[in-house]
Design a protein around this nucleic acid. Structure first.
Lengths: 214, 214, 214, 214
DNA sequence: AATGAATGAGGCTTCATTCAT
DNA sequence: TATGAATGAAGCCTCATTCAT
């Protein structure tokens, strides 16, 4: 029987993770020292190691949390009705996340994780999961919509799913580098582009788009 | 300053930068020690500091080189003829860069720079230049094409330029995380999507795409 | 102080000491953390500090226990009859202690204490007592046997006592480093050597053993 | 071609090892911090790690040096003439090493190594080598002397070799615990005992020494 | 120009012990 | 009595940079 509640334990972990997010978002993983996190969390060195085994474990915990969140956001967008509505919901969700100044830290953290994944196998695994599951579910939705005749069939579901994710990630970078980037304009344009692509009249009626030459 | 000396100087700098790229791509900036670069370059610690004042200066030099390169790639795509051809050239260039295994290191380095920019003001400045100039030139080309009537006018040139860059950056991430991502399929799909968006028949003739609701 | 409480207190102390022996024998004093002892004893940190003031006190308690035990073993060997029988009993006791696998932990602990004594004054004092008392009682027995004419007089009682102890300690090391060392063979040989030494016909009848030259 | 000579390198290593011996002899391995060694050696932290990869490597280097030395000492004792002289040489060598105050540090270090071996596999390996080679060479000499008829045959060469080593190790402990222990008296007595054992008139002529009973 | 030994601050983590409950 | 979370000093090691040669 725990002396302090599980709630207390969770709150301490939260306290540490919040401090870590603050520091990591500001300075990246390697430039942030445990000392920084200790100061920010107002805990002692020892206390932090009571809740996490290492700095790396903190990073991995945050990576995992982001993965869970991304998965949820995409799943929710597709919870509702038809393809057109889902696509709209997806872009709306995405836009709302990006205009929210409170999440700026998380977005910066996310970018640090993208780079971290290149040299940290555990983070890479989490990032892959965080991207593959959304890719697969997007891809599945696209294929489903095609099967139902609501979407033109020339679209490659996997590539199209990657397009959507790439748009999101790509803009997150632009926004991180320059706060003045216009999220709404981007989201509208991106949505319009996706709409144009997905629901374009069958190419056959128009001049066909030639594939890029090898 | 005799000519031989300048050539020698450049070759030494190249030697150091190549070693740095190798190391940074593999381990990121903070995980790479000067010792790593020294070993990889087969030079001595002292020699390296003869050509660069600090590790940071090496990073900044690399950041600048990437910026120059991106600017050039985009400029070249638009060197030629009309809008449609330019768009095609852009995607072809992009695709060719991504299938090239020899550039894998540079692509990884680029991602590290994206994150580095978040906590290194000098790198941020270089990244901004590296993105703003392409953004502006793309934007200018779009506006020009609209003015010439070759492009529908509903497109916001700035947002559209950002879309294109976002697609590129976004996919570079996906490829870095998973080598098996299909570059050609993505490039084709991205091109088709851009085509659909830019050269769509004026919306007025079709059901209008409603803006995302606030 | 009620009897129940004292019994309980002793049992708790035993529990802690047993855990400590286990850990110390395995990892030595400095490598064993209080955390290790806590885990092994299945008690809490606080509980342990209720029974011992510090890690050092645990070590000293164990050192003292060993001292008591050594003293007792030697005393018992000499409880009985004459010199020859006592010597035999001494080696038998010693051999029996070393073949006993159950005492392996204690033997290892003992070695750690020997080294610990070099930098821990309290342990040194206990070790000294643990060795001086046996030395003195052995020495006294030898002198007594000489006085009774049962032992040749050329033997220096103090040095001879040290010889015996040295044999024991020396072999304990060899066994600790290599389990395969043959205890019985060693004990037999050691006994034979001691016999040869102590009960040798007076040197005067034979070629005298010259002292080692300075 | 090295910038500084191999001699310089060796002298630096010596400087570090001497400091380490000083500290380790005084406080043991675990109580000695790298900080201690740094201070004692008058070098910087970084400098030390230029010559040794870790604190452990320093310990192992010292363990190896002792092993080499012990092997040499024993070999030298048996370099000369017959068995009796060799035995005498062995005890003389041993005694001379123990009376030398300059080697007190090394003797203490040796004891710390004996305990360290119990929890440090690399040190254990070195200690084993440091003891097995002497054991084997002693054992070989004994067997040889027996074959030549210079030694009675009832002696078990391996056990007898262990006896000798045990005497040495055992007394080193006693001396470390109490400086006043009389080395010369011990060495003389030990030598006399060994003599009595090895060159005793065949047992058959006297009352046989019964083996210790099981 | 070139070398590489040297510096010493600072990074991550552990640990004996305490104390509020 | 008993718990175990909390403390914070101290331990081992790395690293960007300098400088005598």
């Amino acid at each position: 029987m725990p002396k302090v509640s599980a709630a207390h334990r969770d709150s301490r972990r939260r306290q540490i993770l919040d401090a870590a997010i603050e520091c990591f978002a500001r300075k990246g993983f390697q430039r942030t020292s445990m000392e920084d996190i200790i100061r920010e969390s107002k805990l002692s060195a020892g206390a932090i190691y009571l809740y996490f085994h290492s700095k790396n474990e903190i990073i991995e915990t945050l990576a995992d949390a982001r993965h869970q969140r991304e998965k949820r956001l995409i799943a929710e967008s597709f919870a509702g009705a038809g393809w057109t509505e889902s696509l709209r919901a997806l872009f709306t969700t995405f836009r709302d996340a990006l205009v929210e100044p409170a999440e700026k830290k998380e977005r910066r953290l996310g970018i640090h994780l993208w780079a971290e994944a290149l040299c940290n196998p555990k983070v890479l695994r989490l990032i892959r999961r965080g991207i593959n599951q959304p890719l697969e579910s997007l891809s599945r939705e696209i294929a489903k919509a095609q099967a139902d005749g609501r979407l033109q069939k020339t679209v490659d579901p996997d590539a199209a799913a990657r397009l959507l994710i790439a748009l999101f990630h790509g803009f997150i970078l632009q926004q991180a580098w320059d706060d003045r980037a216009d999220v709404r304009a981007f989201a509208n344009a991106a949505h319009a582009m996706a709409e144009a692509y997905f629901s374009a009249a069958p190419r056959s009626r128009r001049a066909p788009v030639r594939e890029l030459q090898a």
